[in-house]
Simulated assay, not measured.
Amino acid sequence: MKRPETLAQMNAALGRFATDHGVETGLAYRPGPTDIFISPYSKCGTTWVSQIAHGLRSGGDMAFDEITDVVPWLELAHDMGRNVNDPQAYSPKLFKSHLPWGVIPEGGRYIVVLRDPVDAMVSLYRFFDGWVFERGAISLEDFAEYYLDRMGREDYWSHASSWWGVRGRQDVLLMAYEHMKQDLAKSVAQIADFMKVSDARTRDVAQAQATLDFMKAHGQQFDDHLVRQARDAACGLPPDGEASKVAGGQAGAGRAQIGDVMREAYADKWRATMGATHGLESYEDVLARLKG
């Protein structure tokens, strides 16, 4: 069994990652008013925020095999043998998701992180390389072109636009990945305030357990091995893939890894979507507005 070696083969494999019934089961969930959905786009800080939020609600309990044990993935839980209606060990209930506003079940509370789309794309490429496709079989430039219109209406820009449009709601906390990198303490405090966790020691523990060093030291708890065990066979992927979730994630580093033509294509895409809809001419405008 070999991993995909072309974008078409990769898309076919990813098309089997979640079943229609499994996704529908997740979408049918009816949240309680304290439930929190952590729903950035792929590779925009979902695992990081999940760790912070779980630390805040649990006081730093690390007794889990993998983070999706304690923060179930809404769209994939059924396909992983989980029931999203089951009680969770701590309150509030937490769910991971990558869904946009307008699709994700309403009635709960939502934490979303935006990230420079080029950095998010490069991170996803590195994540897929050696897991979803044969290592080195697909070039970064080809993947970058594919990502521009990835998943149709559920591409990066549609997701970002949907959440930007509701950023003023009291039940939505919209953050920037780059700000989390710059000031983790401030970001943990924002999430703690949103979760109404005031205890200083709990905040300190959650912050300590969300550092890059700590999460790298506990890398197996964040590497999606349970996800791969549950879904690799369905996707036709060999069982020995690697999919590390904890990386350095240097802000802005992705742009140096693609050519001028592709960089301009990403700038054009941004202007045609976030610019036209929200008046945000570049991702730097997002950073300025969220830092506000």
Rank of each mutant, 00 (worst) to 15 (best):
R3W: 06
R16V: 03
D20Q: 15
H21D: 15
I38A: 02
S39Q: 03
C44G: 11
G45C: 07
G45H: 08
T46D: 04
T47R: 06
W48G: 07
Q51G: 10
I52G: 05
I52W: 01
R57L: 08
M62N: 12
D65H: 11
V71Y: 07
A77S: 10
M80S: 07
S91P: 03
S91R: 13
L94H: 09
F95S: 01
K96I: 00
P100F: 10
V103Q: 14
I104S: 11
I104D: 07
P105V: 06
G108A: 05
I111R: 07
R115C: 00
R115P: 14
R135Y: 08
L140V: 13
E145T: 10
R153P: 10
S158Q: 12
A160Q: 07
V172E: 09
Y177E: 13
K181S: 03
A189N: 13
I191Y: 03
A192L: 04
M195E: 05
K196D: 15
T202G: 07
T202M: 01
D204S: 13
A206Q: 03
L212K: 10
F214G: 06
H218G: 05
F222H: 12
Q229K: 15
A230W: 06
A234W: 00
S244W: 12
A247M: 10
A247S: 13
G248N: 15
G248V: 12
G249L: 10
V261E: 15
E264A: 14
Y266V: 02
A267T: 14
M274P: 09
L280N: 01
Y283M: 06
Y283L: 09
K291C: 08
